[in-house]
């Protein structure tokens, strides 16, 4: 830990992207669950995620990155699913 003599004046953070080092997933009470068979890969979840918890590879979505997901549920709310079946549902964390 830094001493008072070592901290940056005004608490400015000079390292871009340093939020990656601070994993905020532990704040989560609700956990989004991805149901692959209902997913049409529209990527609305990726668009709406306020963090970067929806991983995408070659235009297809992949599993959640739970290190940063705070369980806000926006992805589940926006998910159009397939034929009325949601591809993302929220579950109680720890169940």
């Amino acid at each position: 830990m830094k001493t008072w003599k070592e901290v940056n004046p005004g608490a400015v953070i000079l390292e871009p992207g340093s939020a990656r080092k601070f994993k905020t997933g532990s704040w989560r009470a609700m956990r989004p669950k991805w149901i692959e068979e209902n997913c049409i890969h529209c990527l609305l979840c990726w668009v709406y995620c306020p963090d970067m918890s929806v991983k995408v590879k070659d235009g297809k979505r992949e599993q959640f990155d739970y290190d940063f997901c705070k369980g806000c549920g926006l992805c589940a709310l926006e998910c159009p699913g397939k034929k009325g079946q949601k591809a993302i549902v929220m579950e109680q964390e720890g169940n």
Binding site: V7, A11, V12, I13
Partner: peptide, 12 residues
């Protein structure tokens, strides 16, 4: 790039 106004808690 830099950030101003971060959360500084009990540790800092």
């Amino acid at each position: 790039p830099k950030s101003y106004g971060p959360l500084i808690l009990t540790d800092m």
